[in-house]
Design a protein around this nucleic acid. Sequence first.
DNA 1: CGCGCTTTTGAGATTACTCAAACTTCGTGG
DNA 2: CCACGAAGTTTGAGTAATCTCAAAAGCGCG
Lengths: 204, 204
Amino acid sequence: MVFPSGRCFIQEGAPAHDFYVLTGGRAKLFTLMPDGRRQIVGFAELGDFLGLTSSETYAFTAEALGDVTLCRFPHSAIDRLVERFPRLRGRLQKEASSELVKMQSRLMVLGRKTARERLASFLVEQASPCCGHHALHDEREPLTLPLPMSRTDIADYLGLTIETVSRTFGLFRKEGLISVKGASSVTLLEPGVLSDMANGIKRD
Amino acid sequence: MVFPSGRCFIQEGAPAHDFYVLTGGRAKLFTLMPDGRRQIVGFAELGDFLGLTSSETYAFTAEALGDVTLCRFPHSAIDRLVERFPRLRGRLQKEASSELVKMQSRLMVLGRKTARERLASFLVEQASPCCGHHALHDEREPLTLPLPMSRTDIADYLGLTIETVSRTFGLFRKEGLISVKGASSVTLLEPGVLSDMANGIKRD
DNA sequence: CGCGCTTTTGAGATTACTCAAACTTCGTGG
DNA sequence: CCACGAAGTTTGAGTAATCTCAAAAGCGCG
């Protein structure tokens, strides 16, 4: 199952009949307020489970960021699947609890961090695609990241405006922390500094 | 197992040997930044599971809000428990996914809502202790809530300062939306209006 | 009744937002 | 291959919401 860039394959509030496993590409997950304010609640990648909810409806909209491939399963098939692949159960539990931990750190980002700290957190998070438990590859090793999402997406993920995101990118650039190529690729020149900034640690 | 008010029974970062079921009272769950900034990631109540994590350490600190009673189980006992009480598995899954949905709405609160909307969200959430899926009891029925947490706790939950929380309470009072008794008890005089405000809906 | 702590209120500072305009980038078509 | 146009991004100037610092008021408790 393939969806083209920009296609919403899960709709917030729609009856939650199916769940999906993302097998290629990335997607953004978001919720909307009636007046259009948007909060991106996460980005999904290879291997992520989407649409598993205990309620009758989906809690967020999922939109393809670039082309995306998915496997769809009806909710009713979960038990059958778990029976056939017993490993799956542990996988689902791990997934859920690690997602919960990520959510808690996102709450800190949105509730208590400054714009600089938020963007640094975002960059560091993007740098460690799976599980962030091992620090950045190397404190001083430049690291180039693709950023498939727009500035607007980053802003809606970090609870900022697009202008603030852009200005903060500009500051980081001037300070020699990053270099930017064409708005969709960043190189972290000082991963260690960014990581400390993300965690609210001041270096003199 | 009983813990007195103010006692931390789970420490962020400590090895996660046990998990808990809260059987009485309430607790606040929070994470800290090195400079002391605090984000309350949730309040736990009767029946909540705490300390279930896929990682080696706890992701948050849990502190008793008033006296709290708990049952403690070593993590290693989960499989045994699930074997003996097969219902528990579904319970754990439901718990996890409903917590995830709550987290998503908290992200919207912290990322995109104004101070007024945040406090309204908080009051409405406190008014529907379990699952918020059925609207407030009655749109126009005043509803009195105990607030066991301090203004500081509310501020750290909503990503605001204590002064902003206090001022916003003051505004709501002046506008006839609530009435306050002794800072630890509120009456929602216009639950419908507050609920709309929480969701960013303007009433003329 | 007085003390300490929490909460409320006030005044000014600051961060991030809003509105507006200029500039890039990238895809399209000549 | 280059010019054009639309969309996305960056930059600028002024504003507004919330924060910070400070002081007064209220509340609970001994």
